[in-house]
Computed example of a mutant assay.
Amino acid sequence: MKINKISKAGGCGCKMSPLQLNEFLNGLTENQDLLNNNEDCSVISIDKENYLLKSLDFFTPVVEDPYTYGKAAAANALSDIYAKGGEPIMIQSIVGWPTDILSIKTLREVFKGANKICEESNLSISGGHTIISKEPIFGLSITGIVKKVNFKPNNNLNDGDLIFTTKPIGTGVLSTTQKLDKLDVEGTKILYETISKSNIIGIKISKLEYVKSVTDITGFGLLCHLLEMTSTNKVKIKLMKDNIPFIPESLKYLNLGIETSGGKRNRQYFEKHQQSNGFSGLYFDPQSNGGLAVVVNKKDKLKFVDFLIKNNLSKHINPIASVINENNKLPTFSFY
């Protein structure tokens, strides 16, 4: 049996909806030693120079290939640390496995894929916990560290800033299409390459002093993650529609009526803030190990474009959005 056939939803599409998450977290006690800004991971000061980072991330199979599933799950978990510029120092695994229908051999392939990604940080999985479950679950718990001077919050946006991304968008639709046995060879290749690519570039980005803010675009989709970035700022976002790197194959399958359940939940959450008319399903498509959203001021645009080119990200040299003052009469999100 293909591993992506067992679970109801796959990858970051299996996340609890933002609406449910807000209901769950509302009023719960928070540790005031932490930076509580809806950050990508837990952040705590450990001395005058460093923050300790902690993240836990797991999901159900996003693809039918066990090795690629392991790579994607590991890269997705590490992404929260990399988005803050952190360097991982310890990695443990979380496993739920339906041993009555999936073999241990298959699980070993998942681990091999995960370890391949961890090797980029010169680390391997050092331990973890396993249970027997009805659906396959795999992910990582990661401890990292970052110099305070390099830490980039996810909510430092001001009028005149530009937002860039580092990966194409649309893997949720491709993953769902594969689960329906309708994904072609080219779509499969793009899906596997995109979800397996590490966001380790975040470490370099964090060391650019002119970069103001960074987050990763994952299960809540592009618009809900950008909405989160604006939640504590009096700013609005103007999207540059032609610059948003939607995967052409994803648009093809979306036009055939294939959309993710996670994307629909993301749209429902977005509509609590603004009407979603004019926004296609890919704006809400849950990304498993999606790219980084990086904020720089417009005066630093050329410096960042040069950085992207030098780091083999020339496909992403065009900003996808600009930040404008809240006093503007436009809605929170609008198009140029």
Score class of each variant (00 low, 15 high):
residue 332 T to D: 04
residue 200 I to G: 03
residue 91 I to A: 10
residue 26 N to S: 13
residue 139 G to L: 12
residue 305 V to H: 07
residue 217 I to G: 01
residue 315 K to T: 15
residue 242 D to H: 14
residue 159 D to G: 12
residue 157 L to W: 00
residue 75 A to D: 11
residue 178 Q to L: 02
residue 142 I to H: 04
residue 2 K to H: 12
residue 257 G to L: 08
residue 164 F to N: 01
residue 241 K to R: 13
residue 247 I to N: 05
residue 225 H to F: 01
residue 295 V to A: 09
residue 223 L to D: 00
residue 88 P to M: 03
residue 217 I to L: 12
residue 67 Y to Q: 02
residue 97 W to R: 01
residue 71 K to F: 10
residue 147 K to S: 05
residue 20 Q to W: 09
residue 161 D to M: 01
residue 311 N to C: 08
residue 192 Y to W: 09
residue 326 E to I: 11
residue 309 I to C: 15
residue 135 E to C: 10
residue 214 V to S: 00
residue 278 G to E: 04
residue 2 K to V: 09
residue 166 T to M: 06
residue 43 V to T: 13
residue 25 L to W: 07
residue 236 K to T: 05
residue 321 A to F: 03
residue 145 I to D: 01
residue 332 T to W: 04
residue 194 T to I: 03
residue 328 N to H: 12
residue 131 I to N: 10
residue 42 S to I: 07
residue 127 G to W: 03
residue 15 K to W: 10
residue 271 E to Q: 08
residue 310 K to E: 03
residue 275 Q to T: 09
residue 126 S to I: 01
residue 198 S to R: 02
residue 17 S to G: 04
residue 110 V to T: 04
residue 165 T to W: 01
residue 318 N to R: 13
residue 164 F to K: 03
residue 78 L to E: 07
residue 91 I to M: 10
residue 307 F to W: 02
residue 193 E to M: 11
residue 81 I to N: 04
residue 193 E to F: 13
residue 331 P to W: 09
residue 179 K to L: 05
residue 10 G to I: 05
residue 251 L to A: 05
residue 139 G to Q: 07
residue 324 I to T: 06
residue 112 K to M: 14
residue 111 F to H: 09
residue 173 V to Y: 00
residue 98 P to A: 02
residue 183 L to M: 06
residue 52 L to E: 06
residue 16 M to K: 08
residue 58 F to R: 05
residue 295 V to P: 01
residue 313 L to S: 09
residue 194 T to G: 14
residue 125 I to W: 03
residue 34 L to W: 03
residue 161 D to V: 02
residue 271 E to M: 06
residue 272 K to H: 11
residue 279 F to W: 01
residue 147 K to E: 11
residue 322 S to I: 10
residue 234 K to C: 10
residue 196 S to F: 02
residue 80 D to K: 10
residue 185 V to R: 15
residue 286 P to V: 06
residue 312 N to H: 08
residue 231 S to E: 09
residue 2 K to E: 02
residue 173 V to S: 02
residue 102 L to C: 07
residue 23 E to Y: 14
residue 254 L to S: 11
residue 216 D to E: 08
residue 177 T to V: 07
residue 188 T to D: 07
residue 11 G to Y: 00
residue 43 V to M: 14
residue 102 L to N: 07
residue 317 I to M: 04
residue 24 F to Q: 10
residue 284 F to C: 03
residue 201 I to G: 09
residue 232 T to P: 13
residue 267 R to G: 01
residue 164 F to A: 07
residue 54 K to M: 15
residue 248 P to A: 07
residue 53 L to I: 04
residue 32 Q to I: 10
residue 257 G to R: 13
residue 4 N to I: 11
residue 182 K to M: 15
residue 44 I to E: 14
residue 336 Y to W: 08
residue 273 H to F: 12
residue 28 L to R: 12
residue 156 N to A: 15
residue 127 G to Y: 05
